[in-house]
Simulated scan of single mutants.
Amino acid sequence: MLRLKINRAPEWVDLARGVRVQVSPVTSSVMVAARSDIAALPEGLDPGVVSVALTKAIARRVVIDWDGVGDEDENPIGVSEAAVDALIDLHLMCEAFNARVLWPYLELQREKNASSPSPNGISAGAEATAQTAFRSARSAQES
């Protein structure tokens, strides 16, 4: 069953090391805009670099507040594009953001993609690759 989250209010998410972020929901609009942000990246970049760039683009759009983030002198700092990028540059925070903020959205997309192909969609006219069975399987024995 597809589980929809009707309440789309921002929520607090614990990342790591006492850092928590308040995020608005990751939506299709956010994903499209983030992909647009990274469209100008040069061809041939390492996939990991592209992945981090996409994570930063998404985080810049959904992080609206945070706790536990400060400057070099441990003074709390506000959310800004540069500060969000610096947070995501920390491997631990990037992994935590992906796991706790992005994966729930991606998991929902995976559920959505579990439906069968449309007969007139991109798989229309696709050639079957399975070999024909030579004989039928035997019925299960009655007990």
Rank of each mutant, 00 (worst) to 15 (best):
122 I>W: 15
117 P>W: 09
29 S>Y: 11
21 V>S: 01
64 I>R: 08
139 S>E: 08
102 L>R: 15
72 E>R: 12
90 L>K: 08
10 P>R: 08
4 L>Q: 12
28 S>Q: 14
7 N>H: 10
92 L>F: 09
100 R>Q: 12
68 G>P: 06
121 G>E: 05
110 R>D: 06
63 V>T: 13
20 R>Y: 14
118 S>Q: 11
94 C>K: 12
108 L>N: 11
138 R>I: 09
36 S>G: 05
128 A>P: 06
28 S>W: 15
17 R>M: 15
45 L>S: 01
5 K>F: 06
49 V>S: 03
54 L>T: 13
66 W>S: 05
85 D>Q: 07
140 A>K: 12
8 R>S: 00
117 P>N: 05
70 G>C: 07
70 G>L: 11
87 L>N: 01
26 V>E: 07
56 K>R: 15
92 L>N: 03
108 L>I: 07
79 V>F: 01
132 T>P: 07
80 S>H: 01
14 D>V: 14
113 N>A: 09
105 Y>A: 01
114 A>K: 12
119 P>S: 03
35 R>I: 03
31 M>K: 14
143 S>N: 06
141 Q>R: 15
120 N>F: 15
51 S>G: 09
105 Y>T: 01
127 E>C: 03
22 Q>A: 02
63 V>Y: 14
20 R>S: 09
76 P>F: 10
52 V>N: 02
83 A>K: 09
85 D>R: 05
48 G>I: 03
114 A>I: 13
54 L>V: 07
77 I>Q: 12
29 S>E: 15
26 V>S: 07
143 S>R: 07
108 L>V: 05
87 L>K: 05
133 A>L: 13
44 G>F: 06
63 V>G: 07
122 I>D: 14
110 R>Y: 06
15 L>I: 05
138 R>P: 11
133 A>H: 12
75 N>H: 13
141 Q>M: 14
39 A>G: 02
60 R>K: 13
125 G>I: 02
3 R>E: 08
51 S>E: 09
90 L>T: 05
80 S>F: 02
109 Q>I: 02
89 D>A: 01
83 A>S: 15
3 R>P: 11
27 T>D: 07
129 T>V: 12
134 F>M: 04
131 Q>W: 01
28 S>T: 15
19 V>E: 07
90 L>E: 04
46 D>L: 02
91 H>K: 13
127 E>W: 08
76 P>R: 07
79 V>L: 03
45 L>A: 01
131 Q>F: 02
41 L>I: 12
84 V>C: 02
45 L>C: 00
